[in-house]
Design a binder for these strands. Structure first.
Length: 219
DNA sequence: GCGACAG
DNA sequence: ATCTTGTCGC
């Protein structure tokens, strides 16, 4: 396909080029299918999984898992370069075409506004956004304790995402747009995907899938 | 120089 | 991400 950056300097240059291709548009308002993506590690080996759920009842429609090696060391801000190759390969193996990608990490809530969700969105040109478990950048006011409460995530004066409470009394998640979707739609979809747990069912399904696969690597 | 820092 | 016991609660 193409060369992959081998140094932080090269990776920064790639982000600088690709970020101009991010498209900020509303919707998709009623996606029929939603995909969750996640990666699990075992030493220098990894397993990437993509699970497509039916947006109506959250049932599994398709699953794809690939094993491989991290494509880059973990560096805050350059995290995407580590998992993107394996995730793209898994996406290629899907039979069911997802309408939205729900990524494990940040979208525009990134120091250069180009986190994993934006990166994957641009490379696939599919609607994409991120749901992170912890913060990378930005400040925010305390979020209401009830499910659905949200507080804008602001970095350098601009709103880069939302801190969203998906379960009453449980630590909120960090939602940010990636590509071809808006923040309100992303938050609304996230709430539909969290009928019971803190993290979206998409993320949970992908997490289970790649963990099973990574366990298989060692046996 | 001292923290902060997606997964 | 991953390393890790017991423990509180539905």
């Amino acid at each position: 396909m193409q060369s992959w950056p081998r140094t932080e300097e090269e990776a920064l240059a790639v982000q600088d080029t690709l970020r101009s291709r991010v498209v900020l548009t509303p919707g998709p308002m009623s996606p029929a299918t939603v995909a969750g993506l996640d990666v699990a590690y075992d030493g220098d080996r990894l397993a990437a999984a993509v699970v497509v759920l039916d947006a109506a009842d959250l049932s599994v429609r398709d699953t794809a898992v690939v094993r491989g090696r991290p494509a880059f060391p973990y560096v805050p801000g350059l995290f995407a370069f580590r998992e993107v190759p394996a995730l793209l390969e898994a996406l290629d193996r899907l039979t069911v075409r997802p309408d939205v990608l729900v990524c494990d990490g940040q979208g525009l809530a990134h120091p250069r506004r180009f986190g994993l969700a934006a990166h994957l969105g641009v490379l696939t040109d599919m609607p994409s956004y991120g749901v992170g478990k912890t913060r990378l950048v930005g400040e925010y006011e305390p979020v209401g304790e009830e499910r659905g409460a949200r507080s804008p995530l602001i970095d350098s004066g601009e709103t880069v995402g939302a801190v969203l409470r998906t379960r009453a009394g449980v630590k909120p998640v960090f939602v940010s747009v990636g590509h071809r979707i808006d923040l309100d739609t992303a938050c609304a979809l996230t709430l539909r995907l969290t009928p019971r747990y803190r993290l979206p069912e998409t993320t949970r399904a992908a997490d289970h899938a790649c963990r099973l696969a990574v366990a298989t690597i060692r046996m």
